[in-house]
Amino acid sequence: MPIVLFVLLLSLSLTASPIKSITCLSEVSNTLINLNVVSPWMRFHESPNFSILESKVSGEQKFSVWLATTDIETTLVVNKGGVLIQHSFQKANNCKMVTMVSKGEASTLFTTLDFYRGAKDHSKFVILLWSSQMAISLKQVQDLKDKKFDVPIVFVLDEHASLEQAKEFIKKEKLPESYLRRWNFVGRLPASIEHYPSALFVKNGKIMKYIPGYSQPEVLENLIKENL
């Protein structure tokens, strides 16, 4: 009985927040209870296609929780001592929880939440996935260096790539360390996402197009016009 009451209160707390609706609310609420998230949400951002909530957990277990929700899925990102745990709940998967645990520090990763944070700051942007272990993607990074585009290009490293080789490459090419953030995304993506380089064209928090393979800068410019 106390648990039922707790779920009810938590659900009310979520629905009473400025978020209009949270996809898979019941499953998300149950997970939050298990994570002992009881304090109110601290900050939020709401746009037509997605919403972000951030919270701090009170009590002994001090860890941060973020929540991003769209009409197709909700993702919870938990940061405890630098270890990130992402729980994804997709309508298409009957709201079943898919969990991904990352060993890296939060600042070294590009998570689902980073994706929505990027979308909050930029209505349009391109994610360029690269890998230090795919020669053609190194050419892609080199060819796009110092090139200006109408929208921001966010470079994200293959989660499986050798970090040592990647560090060596960005040092040689004098590129910023942000290029080393590793792909750590649990949302809905094409099954063949792992080809490098690949470009994801993002508009208003939605991936409009996934295009794998090397693109000359002029080709990428045309693709941006075509897809964004």
Partner: peptide
């Protein structure tokens, strides 16, 4: 399983 990073090919 909990220690896995990301997706599996």
């Amino acid at each position: 399983i909990m220690r896995q990073e990301g997706v599996i090919r």
